[in-house]
């Protein structure tokens, strides 16, 4: 049983009974879109320009949200250990999908679009980050901060996410 619903943002989502990972977006530390891929039907396709705008806008909002972070009452600057940087937006939820954001220590952001009730998103994110660290960062033909075009990464990513989606 599938139903089609539109919301004001213009995303149309086919909700199914199965839990699925819809799409992955990777944003480099300057806010540029370096990777975008859909894994399952469910999200409307945007034009490549819109994806670029989405990446840039999210990057900006994320940066501002880190500055909203309130200081803890007993948060005294310590000389021995540096506190973790404020995380900024981690989850953004709509009725029909959930956007999970994971920022690496170097400022690369992974945005995962899933169904709202998708379990184990952290694990899926960790798996994707692991694949990225292996098959993108260890590839001598990849130049940093540039769009990701690595066949080995693509192949393994699709295989792993497909396994998650068919679970």
């Amino acid at each position: 049983m599938e139903q089609l619903c539109d919301n004001s943002l213009g995303w149309s989502v086919v909700s199914q009974n199965k839990m699925v990972v819809y799409a992955l977006i990777i944003i480099n530390k300057a806010g540029g879109l370096v990777y975008q891929r859909d894994f399952a039907e469910g999200l409307n396709k945007l034009s490549i320009n819109d994806y670029l705008v989405l990446a840039g806008t999210f990057h900006g909002i994320h940066a501002i949200s880190t500055r909203l972070n309130p200081l803890l009452p007993n948060d005294t600057p310590s000389t021995t250990s540096r506190p973790l940087p404020p995380s900024g937006i981690e989850v953004l939820e709509t009725e029909n999908f959930r956007l999970q954001c994971f920022q690496t220590l170097t400022g690369t952001k992974f945005l995962l679009f899933t169904e709202p009730q998708q379990p184990n998103i952290e694990n899926i994110m960790g798996m994707i980050y692991g694949l990225y660290a292996d098959y993108v960062m260890k590839n001598p033909f990849y130049s940093l901060e540039m769009p990701v075009r690595c066949e080995g990464w693509e192949r393994r990513l699709v295989r792993e996410v497909r396994a998650v989606n068919s679970r």
């Binding site: 260890k138 590839n139 001598p140 990849y142 075009r149 066949e151 080995g152």
Partner: peptide, 14 residues
């Protein structure tokens, strides 16, 4: 293992 050769260099094998 971790190397993906870009399309324009597809004759290369590291």
């Amino acid at each position: 293992q971790y190397i993906s050769v870009p399309k324009e260099m597809n004759q290369l094998n590291c």
